[in-house]
Design a binder for these strands. Structure first.
Length: 352
RNA sequence: GUGGGCGUAGCUCAGUUGGUUAGAGCGCCAGGUUGUGGCCCUGGAGGUCGGGGGUUCAAGUCCCCUCGCUCACCCCA
């Protein structure tokens, strides 16, 4: 049997169950993931997910820490248009009673649900909360919310999370619709979304507490929490917010050689050995064509070698990005000349 | 899985009720400059019109099939 890994939490938990690291255990991963659903904007068949997981800590302050890590990551990248929603899934004490309550409510409003959920809501009543059809939205708007029916312990946990986020200056919104589909999820759920992404898929990071998962995978009951974020979608958000510079840096020098190419061969090698970025033309093209390539390369200077320079052992250093005359320099001083020119050009940049 | 949109030059796209050698802009190449980029001018190269089949005197254009891309629904562990 072949399986394509869809996410990172279960593998990390399996690794924990097998290897029994000392608790608390903090792990992270970044790996390719695959999805079965059809691709669409910002949702690819294969993508990469970055995630963290912490096992062995039930403290709500850890929930805050995990959320903070994600928030901090966005901040460091320079993303500003990111919003956080949080919710609670309750636990084995309060959720069963709530599900009975919710199911009763949905039964009573069965005819008002959308075609799909009318016959399916019993399977997983909470899923109706993230149905986008107006019929279901209307019904769930008045439905009992899990966050209002938490047991004392879960309510206290949730309150501690909210208080912690506030104390760290992390703004958030409690969203009763933020639910998860599996039983092993407990208590805190959260999701970061980008307001800059136009596409329908704008969630950057989803996470939550899964105090039941380790046990489900064969380990002793162990609390856990983590998040996963999609790298490609993150990059879409970065592009949308313009947080990365757009222009790739140009070359330091471009060698124009119309004297046979030997000088170009020697000079490019010498410049590269000195750590400078340079390129040259090939195929014995005309000076005009070579100069055009030099310009297009974004080079700071063109280094020109014609028959006269070849004969006298010099190189013409011609500035391409600034005013200034081209000057001849001895061939063995060309590295210094380029370093000078690049430094001067950088200085001009800074003064802008 | 369901539905919509789109496949024509390297790129972005026009292409009328079917009708001569399928066009534009940008890019590329050469020339105008005999040793000099950008701006401009002139010329040039480059296309199985996604693929296959059909209708027709004639198909980029109409019909069927197929492949691919894309967006949304769905899904969202």
């Amino acid at each position: 049997m072949l399986a394509l890994r869809p996410e990172g939490t279960a593998p990390v938990v399996r690794a924990y169950v097998q290897h029994r690291p000392v608790l608390p255990w903090k792990a992270w991963y970044m790996a390719p993931m695959l999805r079965h659903e059809r691709p669409q904007a910002a949702r690819y068949r294969q993508h990469h997910q970055l995630g963290i997981e912490v096992l062995g800590v039930a403290d709500a302050d850890l929930d805050v820490e995990v959320i903070w890590v994600a928030r901090e990551f966005f901040t460091v990248l320079g993303l500003a248009d990111v919003s956080l929603r949080i919710g609670s899934m309750g636990d084995a004490t309060c959720r069963p009673a709530y599900l009975v309550l919710l199911t009763e409510y949905l039964e009573a409003h069965r005819d008002e649900l959308c075609d799909e959920h009318r016959d399916r809501f019993q399977l997983n009543p909470m899923r109706v909360f993230d149905c986008k059809r107006p019929e279901c939205r209307a019904v769930t708007a008045g439905a009992p919310k899990l966050v209002d029916h938490l047991c004392d312990a879960c309510a206290a946990h949730f309150e501690r999370v909210r208080e912690g986020l506030k104390s760290l200056g992390i703004s958030f919104e409690v969203d009763p619709r933020l639910v998860r589909g599996f039983d092993y999820y407990t208590r805190t759920t959260f999701e970061f979304a980008s307001g800059a992404i136009e596409a329908a898929q704008n969630a950057l990071c989803g996470g939550g507490r899964y105090d039941g998962l380790v046990e489900m995978l064969g380990g002793d009951p162990t609390p856990g929490i983590g998040f996963g974020m999609g790298i490609e979608r993150l990059l879409v958000a970065c592009d949308a917010e313009g947080v990365f510079p757009v222009d790739p840096p140009g070359l330091d020098a471009f060698v124009v050689d119309v004297a046979g190419g030997e000088a170009a061969r020697a000079i490019t090698t010498r410049l590269r050995d000195a750590g400078l970025a340079c390129d040259r033309a090939f195929d014995g093209r005309s000076m005009k064509a070579q100069m055009k390539l030099a310009d297009r390369s974004g080079a700071t200077v063109a280094l020109i070698v014609g028959p006269a320079e070849a004969a006298s052992g010099t190189v013409l250093v011609r500035p391409l990005r600034s005013e200034g005359d081209q000057v001849p320099v001895p061939a063995d001083a060309v590295v210094d000349a380029v370093v000078d020119a690049v430094r001067r050009a950088a200085g001009l940049e800074d003064r802008r």
